[in-house]
């Protein structure tokens, strides 16, 4: 692995809760990663376009609106359709436990819920990106 890990932190849909996304974005930046924060109210198409343009290693999707079962799989699907297979997709927010399995089947590598620490997320991204590159 050479160079900085590139992470797109994105807020899909109409949800305005950006406290978590901003904290994560800053923590990843402080951990030496290159962070591209999309800002709010992004469509799945916009997020995928950003991920491709920015040559992202990781796309982190933050959803606290309850719409995660529509928005998150859509991003994962569009990435696959665009032939982008090597981007790791993570999800975070108020996502009930019972939805985690289905999100993982749709291509989400991990789901982080309230109480997750930035330390754990940083460590997870570092080891996953290293694993994917190996």
């Amino acid at each position: 692995m050479t160079g900085k890990i590139r992470v797109v932190v994105a807020k899909p849909g109409l949800d305005g809760h950006d406290r978590g996304a901003k904290v994560i974005a800053r923590a990843l930046r402080d951990a030496g990663m290159e962070v591209i924060y999309t800002g709010l109210h992004q469509t799945a198409e916009q997020i995928v376009e950003t991920a491709i343009q920015e040559d992202a290693d990781v796309v982190g999707l933050s959803v606290l609106s309850g719409a995660h079962m529509t928005l998150v799989p859509k991003v994962a699907r569009l990435l696959r359709e665009q032939g982008v297979e090597d981007v790791l997709v993570l999800a975070g927010g108020t996502i009930p436990e019972e939805d985690h399995e289905e999100l993982k089947r749709e291509g989400v590598l991990a789901v982080f819920t309230p109480g997750a620490t930035t330390t754990d997320i940083v460590a997870f991204i570092k080891s996953s990106v290293a694993g994917a590159a190996a």
């Binding site: 849909g13 109409l14 109210h41 309850g66 719409a67 529509t70």
Partner: peptide
């Protein structure tokens, strides 16, 4: 959220968010 953001329930931007 679609209501708060000014979209009708049948707007593309509302997909997955209606009544949530």
């Amino acid at each position: 959220l679609p209501t708060l953001m000014g979209y009708d329930s049948d707007d593309l931007r509302s997909e997955g968010e209606v009544g949530r």
